[in-house]
Design a protein around this nucleic acid. Structure first.
Lengths: 303, 303
DNA sequence: ACCGCTTACGAAAATCGTAACTATG
DNA sequence: CATAGTTACGATTTTCGTAAGCGGT
């Protein structure tokens, strides 16, 4: 019996899937499967009921997962021994929206590195609904994403409000730089794909304005959308502070609309049942580091 | 960090020596040393102060040993999962005097195997003082040995009283089969070596009788002493019930002495600070199985 | 010089990933 | 037929013991 086996088993139960657990532990499903098989052999009893499609823990498995949990907590305690007081160790898997990643993520990681030198961080960038789902499943420890989200069992805390504006390339600007229903119907709209929190907000805005739009272009990458907008391929709603440099350089034109595109609240998402101090500490650091309006030092992806 | 490393480290601290810990874990000192070095690397701090001759645990080492202890308890808990309720698992290292080993040890191991099929037992046969020292050091979980012993920090519980008699070969029997001071001075005495509990008792008996004997023959093996006695090489004090078959066959002659050689109390020895349920359970089994007077089933080494 | 621990090194074993396989819904 | 997990197998890595090295008493 090894700690690796117990760790694999613990996550397999916690995440309810061998494949996802393997992903969480940076290994292949095959290896994880074998580790669990070894553990079952050494315990002498099957730990999973494999009759169905999903592997469900047996009674013995449920007893073991309690012990494995204690065991893994002790390993955390051990790795904290070599660290300054109150410092976290281990690995933190978290999610971030692209805007987060491109603005204050470096600042946040600097904070984390300074306070918790023993902590390994693995940021994962994706769209809000993906992040939310992965947090709900336990694949991510927490995430920062726009919108309150919909999943249950998730605790949310607002991090910051981000202003958005409608933009397009100056060459294709509508009359008076004003967005009307006609404009929205006549020009393609470039949005993120449906899994994005912004797109979710956009749909709400459309409903609010009795608008029935057909996106002409949907992309899962914010920087790409900015590029497409600059190229004059359509309208898009973009974070104001983040894209201001492009406006200043005359590459983008902010437009007026009535009502304006609503500001978006970005949230810190974590599982309600996750009481680890890691989560509490990270929430604090996020609060301190979060600033969507400033570039990180001299670096800005758009400058 | 692995469980093996933690186990090695735990025993190295507990036994105060790498070499002894390695022996306890059935591996070489070299491997144990490397395991501990790996553990130190993964913790990031030295766990032992190696400046002196003995490796003393550092402060970090002392913190870790607490956690390692909890961890190993949890592994015990896990291995009990696959076992019937109240059943012990793991390995039990214990000591037994030769007489114990040759009489009721098989019976005891039968009991252990029936009640605790998951327990690995490693009996170690040696003389009383050796057993006592190894119990005191923690190398053995417990031991069954004659005499109360002298070491401190050891809990003792009487198991059984064993009757002894003086014997010799019929051919060399003294007048009236009686042991007198003259006889003791004129005939060689065959005893176990000084580390035996019986020899310790013999010395006490000599002091009691104002006797100044010089052993002619001292051997560390009971069966050998019996053989030497039968060969007529001298007197010896032997366990009565155990050697009765030889008396019945006319190979040995019991002698009278005044005072008689005192009966010996055999004790269950364990460390006072060892509160494991293993010890309590083994003490019970020993009490039940202990019977120095009966052969094991059809088998008797002297029949 | 001995004792206690470490280092060097080669043989043996465990681990891991790719890919093929099996079973379930 | 797509998904979830297992098995086969070869390459790499790890582990372990023998034997030599090293420092302290």
């Amino acid at each position: 019996m090894t700690l690796k086996q117990l760790e694999a088993f613990y996550w397999a139960v916690k995440l309810g899937s061998f494949a996802i657990a393997a992903q969480r532990l940076n290994m292949t499903q095959s290896s994880l499967s074998k580790r669990i098989a070894e553990l079952e052999y050494s315990v002498g009893k099957p730990l999973f009921d494999r009759s169905g499609k999903k592997a469900l823990p047996t009674e013995a498995g449920l007893s073991l997962v309690e012990i494995a949990n204690k065991m893994l907590q002790l390993t955390d305690e051990i790795s904290s021994l070599g660290q300054p007081e109150g410092s976290l160790t281990g690995t933190c898997n978290f999610g971030a929206s692209e805007l987060t990643a491109l603005t204050w993520l470096p600042s946040m990681l600097e904070h984390v590195g300074a306070r918790h030198p023993g902590l390994v961080v693995e940021p994962y960038v994706d769209l809000a609904t993906v992040l939310e789902r992965r947090v709900a499943r336990g694949e991510l420890d927490f995430a920062i994403a726009p919108g309150p989200g919909v999943a249950s069992g998730i605790s949310r805390k607002k991090v910051q409000t981000v202003e958005f504006w409608w933009t397009c390339a100056p060459a294709v600007a509508p009359a008076d730089n004003l967005i009307t229903l006609d404009v929205l119907r006549s020009m393609p709209i470039i949005t993120m794909t449906g899994e994005s929190g912004l797109t979710r907000a956009f749909h709400a805005w459309c409903v609010l304005n009795n608008l029935n739009v057909r996106h002409k272009i949907a992309c899962n990458n914010l920087m790409t959308i900015i590029g497409l907008t600059i190229a004059g391929l359509g309208l898009s709603y973009l974070p104001a502070a983040f894209t201001k440099p492009l406006v200043d350089r005359g590459l983008l034109l902010p437009l007026n609309s009535d009502p304006p595109f609503p500001a978006q609240d970005y949230h810190f998402l974590a599982r309600e049942d996750d009481r680890r101090s890691l989560i509490a500490e990270m929430r604090i650091i996020v609060q301190e580091a979060a600033d969507f309006s400033k570039p990180y030092g001299q670096w800005h992806p758009l400058m």
